[in-house]
Design a protein around this nucleic acid. Structure first.
Lengths: 334, 334
DNA sequence: GCGCTTTTGTAAAGCGCTTTAGCAATCGGC
DNA sequence: GCCGATTGCTAAAGCGCTTTACAAAAGCGC
């Protein structure tokens, strides 16, 4: 591997000059720049990451933290990974993805100073990573809202709007008895979504009714139980709002019960997971504009690095309804 | 952030001693070790990654390379990520995941020397990452088989066995007209699987018949077309072997055609993606023991780092059949 | 208590960069 | 043709570690 000294020698300049040219600092004769660049090209020189990071006390690298949990197997996460990887690269930073199975492994990695800042995914209501990063003084952006978000940069979906999108779609189709099947409420986003749904219900003058809300524990069996709870209340539910993953189970369970989707019951998901289109029937859902979220998050982190003292920013990204085959007109009341 | 000098001062020793103790080199009085460790603990000292890498010319970090492609949205990949992250950590290395959308982004990252070795996922038949890493002299292990694999460390599923597993299961259920719907054959694993299936067919004395083989281009529409091609041949197929993702489309399409699974047609997948259990009916498939693959790959890379000159090793991991609801007895011939 | 090895430690060099401070040459204005 | 500003470049320090080479102290056999 060639070093900066090799380049300097080849180009007939000092290593300072090479360094400055490579980092666009100072002014140089175009001819000098050309000589240096040519040498870089010819020797296939790449600055050594460790040396550069050590000297500059900056790694120019941003990391995305993902958690390894049973519920993290939504392929939507892969879309996030990809979109964030691209967004970060476009901002001129190196990107890396860290997957941790526990806080300790995250802490170990975070305290090695391998990256300048963090993007946090799968954020919990009381996320320990946030506390840790704050304590260490490492810049970060939370993708998703923790309970205490005043002091943190947050990028998230505008769930108030997604609730409205889902509800208005169903209302327009004539549905009035609309159930909500929530993912575990310990996940911040789930609680926020439920709240938004309830607020929106009220806004439209529909009764807020505990019979119409159920919570799954995240497992398939839990989803079936939640669905049974909903149905056991004996009121004629014609539509159900849930998340994409439980929706798959809902779809299958309803079919087992002899109910047709969307003829008897409409089902709407909440995040346009790649699975949604593969479902049977294809799931009507809400697309989260993953790319925009990624872009906003990468941008927010880059800004935070530039201006450490700027006030925290909260960015909510709008979503859009994707109508597929799982929603239809409400059955006419018999 | 405390440095090694702070620890040395606190413990009353030299920085060499601190370094040696932290890296288990040389012999020291238990008392000295205790003093150093206590200081480390108290000041929450973590060796600086950049400084350490620069001085040691080793980063003690292993990276997993994933590609960002449309077909990479199988949540099975998330299982791989998680399992490999854990296996690598257990081997005592730092782990990081790199997602590249093209070769250039991979090359840029790989040539920064941020990691000592690579694990390659989603390996293509002619994978450019392999050529690149070889040229750079960077150790790596390929998870999956490239066309030219004599000179590379490979860990892969034993597809000869998976083919047998699938075929024997269907044969035992009385199926004789068994179709194979392959993923794009440009993916190495797809070609290997098809070959294994054909070999196994022959072994059981079944006719090898072009009418029973089709290839999807990876899209949903392509899968439907492939399925139509199979059915248009006019022979009464009673079972179909495919991969998990296309299987979802197959399931839905067959239902649209009025065919019952498994009463009329049995469907078997090939990798026990988390999706398989969510399918309707739940998909009979082959579980790949992702953890074992991860363990083997991490182990192979660690070994390669220790013994750069050892001959390349090829490790095939066996799989197991997971019987769920998509396979059943062959319909009695009318 | 002499020579030997083993134990326990240290000083100093250097990994490959960035950054700071500064200097020589050139230029424009008068 | 003198002065200050600008342009174009460099020497040297130092980032926080590991490693090499070496040394003092302790233990041991006799």
């Amino acid at each position: 591997m060639p070093t900066i000294y090799d380049i300097a020698r080849e180009a007939g300049v000092s290593i300072t000059t090479v360094s400055n040219i490579l980092n666009n600092k100072g002014r140089f004769k175009p001819e000098t720049v050309a000589r240096v660049l040519e040498a870089v090209e010819r020797l296939k020189y790449r600055p050594n990451f460790a040396a550069r990071s050590l000297a500059a006390r900056r790694t120019n690298t941003l990391a995305l933290s993902a958690l390894l949990t049973p519920e993290s197997f939504d392929p939507l996460n892969l879309q996030y990974f990809g979109a964030i990887a691209q967004a970060v690269s476009r901002s001129g930073f190196n990107f890396l993805l860290h997957i941790s199975h526990n806080l300790e492994s995250f802490e170990r990695f975070a305290s090695m100073g391998i990256c300048d800042g963090w993007l946090l995914m799968m954020v919990r209501r009381q996320d320990e990573r946030i506390a840790l990063l704050k304590e260490m003084g490492v810049p970060f952006v939370s993708i998703g809202r923790p309970d205490e978000m005043e002091e943190v940069d947050v990028v998230d979906t505008d769930f108030e709007q997604t609730a409205r999108l889902a509800l208005e779609h169903l209302l327009a189709l004539g549905h009035r008895r609309i159930a909500y099947l929530a993912e575990p409420l310990e996940f911040g986003y789930s609680a926020i979504r439920l709240r938004a749904y309830l607020a929106c219900l009220k806004e439209y003058g529909l009764e807020e009714n505990a019979d119409l809300v159920a919570e799954t524990d995240g497992t398939e069996a839990g989803t079936v139980r939640a669905l049974e709870a909903l149905w056991s209340k004996g009121r004629s539910i014609t539509a159900i709002i849930t998340h994409d993953i439980p929706a798959l189970t809902v779809l299958r369970t309803l079919r087992e019960w002899g109910l047709q989707v969307p003829e008897d019951v409409s089902v709407i998901g909440c995040s346009d997971s790649p699975l949604a289109a593969l479902a049977d029937p294809p799931l009507t859902t809400i697309n989260l504009y993953v790319e925009r979220i990624a872009e906003a998050a990468a941008g927010a982190l880059a800004r935070r690095l530039q201006e450490p003292e700027a006030p925290p920013a909260h960015t909510l990204i709008p979503a859009r309804l994707v109508v597929r085959g799982s929603t239809g007109s409400a059955p006419s009341v018999g």
